[in-house]
């Protein structure tokens, strides 16, 4: 059996779903961020798989796109963790089901 595009796509889909479940179900805000990171990694893996196996025109632009995604993910993690610190300083918790200040 030759390992082709479908293998990487299925792997990316499974990784995305695991990250999605972690992001939806974790109590801790940092746990939610970990899930978002896994989802971004799954998308990057899918893009790189298309870069390897897709048509030659998209081979370079998908990799440039992955570089941009990694840069934006780094910015997102920095701001997200700073927000977690601020929420912790004000509420003494970073549990997402106890930060209910906006709940009616």
């Amino acid at each position: 059996m030759i390992i082709g595009l479908e293998h990487y796509l299925v792997l990316g889909a499974l990784l995305f779903c695991i990250g999605f479940f972690i992001a939806l179900s974790k109590k801790n805000a940092i746990g939610v961020l970990i899930g978002v990171e896994l989802m971004l990694n799954a998308v990057n893996l899918t893009l790189v798989a298309f870069s390897r196996f897709g048509s030659a025109e998209v081979a370079l632009s998908t990799q440039v796109f992955v570089v941009f995604i990694i840069a934006v993910a780094a910015a997102e993690v920095a701001v997200g963790l700073a927000l977690a610190l601020v929420v912790y300083r004000n509420r003494q918790t970073i549990s997402v089901d106890r930060t209910t200040l906006l709940k009616g």
């Binding site: 179900s25 109590k27 801790n28 549990s95 089901d97």
Partner: peptide, 8 residues
């Protein structure tokens, strides 16, 4: 904050 990573 809790260290625990449990599910909601």
């Amino acid at each position: 904050a809790e260290r625990d990573n449990s599910q909601n």
